[in-house]
């Protein structure tokens, strides 16, 4: 039987984590599936497990003025209904799995799982989110884009716990979110596209776009965004926009979709975002 701890206090958690190099488990919605074995047999987890769901400090959403500090134990269903959370992120969360799963799953878990198809990630990338990693020897705050290094891979060390996610409070007017899932609900993503734009007199002041499940990590290209910032939105050529993103969309074939489909549809939706703004001018 593996050793486990379910502490109330963060200090206690961090001390134990550094001693045991334990596996942190929040909602368990990914890990319990990843480590499950044939029905009736024990879990395949062999490392000590640190349950983070009962740590008091990790349950709050703190308003820092222009950003939010979201505790690692906050449930997706809580964030889905929290009006301080950017509506783009809420929209993405509300399309993850189904109500029962969102009642256990956490945003921090979705981030640490680092799946290319993690649906909360594209909006978090758009908002230049950061993660806070704590260990018994201190904390560090890291841009999310640097935290996730590949499918299932992060730079978290064994004695660190992701305690908070820092998200901008921006509520943009022109937002776009589209999940193309394997079915209408309770689905995994074939691909996702999240974007927003800020306009002043039709001039693009800011434009951001992120794609999920079309590359080993979320695709967000500031260099491409910058090409279009400063231009008038009605001058943006849809083909040019698609072409700018095309080299960055590098999907694979798997049991859920094809590379061909993912690429074509990702670019269609990229163009759709611009076209919708142009049509509504």
């Amino acid at each position: 039987m593996v050793e486990t701890l379910r502490p109330r206090k963060l200090d206690e958690a961090l001390t134990w984590l550094s001693e045991r190099k334990a596996l942190p488990l929040a909602g368990g919605t990914d890990l319990m599936v990843h480590f499950r074995n044939y029905t009736g047999t024990d879990s395949l987890i062999v490392r000590p497990v640190l349950f983070t769901d009962a740590i008091d400090e990790l349950h709050s959403v703190e308003d820092l003025g222009d950003s939010l500090k979201i505790g690692a134990a906050c449930l997706l269903s809580e964030l889905e209904n929290n009006e301080l959370v950017p509506s783009l992120l809420r929209q993405a969360i509300s399309q993850i799995a189904a109500p029962a799963l969102r009642n256990r799953a956490t945003l921090a878990g979705n981030v640490c799982n680092a799946s290319p198809a993690g649906d909360s990630l594209p909006p978090l990338y758009l908002y230049d989110s950061h993660v806070v990693l704590a260990s018994s020897s201190g904390t560090r705050t890291i841009p999310l884009v640097d935290f996730i290094t590949g499918p299932g891979k992060t730079i978290r060390t064994d004695d660190e716990l992701l305690t908070h996610i820092l998200v901008s409070k921006s509520q943009n007017e022109k937002i776009y979110y589209r999940k193309v899932g394997t079915r209408a609900a309770n689905a995994l993503s074939k691909l996702t596209v999240a974007a927003f734009a800020e306009l002043e007199n039709n001039i693009i002041m800011d434009l951001r776009m992120a794609f999920g499940a079309v590359a080993p990590v979320v695709v967000r290209e500031r260099a491409v965004e910058i090409i279009f910032i400063g231009k008038s939105i009605d001058q943006v050529d849809l083909d040019e926009f698609r072409q700018a993103y095309a080299p960055h969309i590098r999907p694979i074939d798997d049991q859920r979709s094809t590379a061909l489909y993912r690429k074509e549809v990702a670019l269609n939706l990229a163009g759709d975002f611009i076209r919708k703004i142009q049509e509504n001018l």
Partner: peptide, 28 residues
């Protein structure tokens, strides 16, 4: 419309879980 079930080079079904084999939900 949705129940895609394919085999790999060994003739094994590629959609072997309810996460991958899609049957209709209430919203389909």
């Amino acid at each position: 419309a949705m129940e895609n079930l394919t085999v790999d080079k060994d003739g094994v079904f590629q959609q072997r879980s309810m996460a991958d084999y899609m049957v209709p939900t209430t919203l389909d």
